Simulated assay, not measured.
Amino acid sequence: MVQRILESAASIEALDQSAIPRLRMPERATVFSARAARLRQLADASHPIAGYLRLMAALADAQQHVLADFTAPMPSRESIALNQQHSMPIVPALGANQRDPAWRDVLFMLLDRIEAAGALTPPLAQLVAHLRSMSADALDAQADAILALRFAEIEPAAAPFIVAALQVVWTDIASRIGSAEVPYMDTSGVCPVCGTMPVASIVRVGGVHEGYRYVQCGLCSTEWHVVRAKCSNCDSTKGIAYHAMDGAEASTAQTAEDEQARAERARNAPLKAESCDECGTYRKIGYQEKAYDFEPFADDLASLTLDLLMGDAGFRRPAPNPWLWPEQSASDEASQADESDEAR
């Protein structure tokens, strides 16, 4: 059951924004290995998609291995300067002309690592063979559809592996960009580095980032600061609420003490869904002080029950987790496309 928790925006909005580090660029040496470790930690025997989480952990390990020896070409200084001048993402990912063809080589290297890990199920072996058989044009078309959220064109089973290859490329680029080079954006709804949407957010502990909320890009893993109690999709501070699993089933004979205990569990939950009544969306937020190993991408992927409950409550995600693409109806696709256009 989900518990709705209201939090005041006033004290958070009063923070001195000039004193807060605006960006956290991805840590090249550990970005994917930390994700893999967290996925394995979350994939306990009772988890409903434990097998899938372990497969994605193997994929994240493969990403870290490939990233160690991969260097993508950087955009020209002229291109970067133009984007800086117009407050645009500094290295936008959307569009085949923005991608070095080597991203497809990265995909095949990831597939090699997955195969080398062994124990491929027949469906997974069939999927790997399918990906290897796709033409360059077909792979680029899938990449474009994924980045543009054109759901009807996306192959849900193949998409996580295609995304994983794109993540390696753009994480490599982002890790070599200085935060001072990244322009301020007019909206917080898209990544200032690659222009794609964030997957989830984290309130960090330690050092200069202590107590601040950062949203994490689902593609390049760049994190940027967004004030808490503000919608990370539409920037509204109205109608913001937090929802958490309270760890108990509802009962018709519930006492006041039961209700108080449920509310306390919800307030102390390490993972919540931040909803916005203005745009009708939600995005998950984790608290590192309550779960130090929290990793936005991994924890978002592993918390499907919260997604289901938020859907039942009438809220929708601005975009799916890039490693889990649900089947979409025509109406769902139109709605998601409208929200994506507004965010961009």
Rank of each mutant, 00 (worst) to 15 (best):
E257L: 13
V208Q: 14
L271V: 14
P198H: 14
K238D: 13
A269K: 07
S303T: 08
S221R: 12
S236K: 12
C231R: 07
G286Q: 11
A248L: 05
T305F: 07
A298K: 02
Q216N: 10
Q254T: 15
V203Y: 04
R262Q: 06
V203C: 05
A229I: 11
T187F: 12
A241F: 07
C194M: 05
G207A: 04
V182D: 00
V199P: 00
S232E: 05
V199K: 08
C194H: 09
E210D: 14
S232H: 11
W224N: 03
C194R: 10
V199E: 09
V208G: 11
Q254N: 08
V226E: 00
L301S: 12
M185P: 06
Y214D: 03
F294D: 07
D293A: 15
C217P: 03
G218R: 02
Q254D: 12
N233Y: 09
A250I: 05
E210L: 07
E249K: 13
L271D: 05
K272S: 03
I285M: 08
A180Y: 00
S221K: 11
M197E: 02
A244K: 11
L304D: 06
R228Q: 05
E259R: 08
M197P: 03
C194F: 08
A266C: 10
A291K: 11
G195S: 04
S232M: 13
D246V: 00
G286M: 15
E210P: 00
S251W: 01
R283K: 14
T281L: 06
I202H: 12
Q260M: 12
P270S: 11
A200K: 13
S188T: 14
E223S: 14
T187P: 10
H225R: 08
S201A: 13
G218Q: 03
T255W: 00
D186C: 08
K284L: 04
G286S: 15
C220K: 12
S188N: 10
T255H: 01
C279N: 07
L301P: 05
V190Y: 10
E289F: 00
Q216T: 09
E257W: 00
S221Y: 12
G247V: 05
V227I: 07
V203P: 01
A200T: 02
I202A: 06
G239E: 09
L304S: 06
A229H: 10
R204D: 04
C276S: 11
L304P: 01
Y214G: 01
A273T: 08
D258C: 05
D300P: 04
S251H: 03
A229W: 04
